[in-house]
Design a protein around this nucleic acid. Structure first.
Lengths: 112, 112
DNA sequence: GCATCATACCTAGACAGCATAGGTATCTAT
DNA sequence: ATAGATACCTATGCTGTCTAGGTATGATGC
């Protein structure tokens, strides 16, 4: 039961999708569950979030697709392109920078 | 020159405002700059973000205001209520949880 | 045989929240 | 006198998530 209507999630779907796909090609439905699994049910994005995101990333050239039928079911596998890898690197760097900054402010016993 | 149009900022204005106000009362214009300063210019929310947020937090009972005129200029100082303190604690906990989860996924060399 | 659930894809519309771009007024410095 | 910093404010746009649907196949249970 992942957090619903949570703040702090802006941009996170894209970051996680790119990160998971960097390890191996996956299809949409699989990604939805992989995010739940990898996050220990802390984060859970519905299909209505993931599918449009995948389409957008494909349109932008960050992902490419390959269709494959398994057990009579058609799957759409996504692979990260070099452009997608760049995007992931940029997003991850930004994430770390922001996290570091925010955690500092939260922790700070106020210097001055 | 803070990051512009950045992802990952959802909910962050509220978190930072509550955190800064916990240390001492501040007025809106001061908060805008305090966020820039405290973040070393990494994060910068315009007044159009902060003022409506302050009004909403006051409406929700998380903040209370006090008017004060300094050098002929009227300032509106904000203080955190106990309700606001609870809210800050909840947001901070959620932030840490999400950060921890996401950083794990980003770092993970993929277990299985 | 039939209903139900998991699989696998998709879209439309609502909603929230940050970004931009204004606007007013006072004080200070050039 | 003009410009810039101070100090407040609102309206509109935009992006992105959330909800809630919809289609279709395969497997499971009765």
């Amino acid at each position: 039961m992942a957090i619903a209507q949570s703040p702090f999630l802006n941009g996170v779907p894209e970051l996680l999708v790119l990160r998971l796909l960097r390890d191996r090609d996956m299809y949409g439905y699989e990604i939805v569950q992989a995010i739940r699994d990898a996050s220990g049910d802390v984060i859970g994005f519905a299909e209505g979030v993931i599918y449009p995101l995948l389409h957008g990333l494909e349109r932008d050239g960050a992902l490419i697709t390959r269709r494959q039928t398994v057990n009579g079911r058609s799957r759409v596998y996504y692979s990260v392109t070099s452009r997608g890898a760049d995007r992931l690197a940029a997003l991850a760097a930004q994430w770390h920078s922001l996290h570091h900054t925010i955690s500092d402010i939260l922790a700070e016993p106020r210097h001055a």
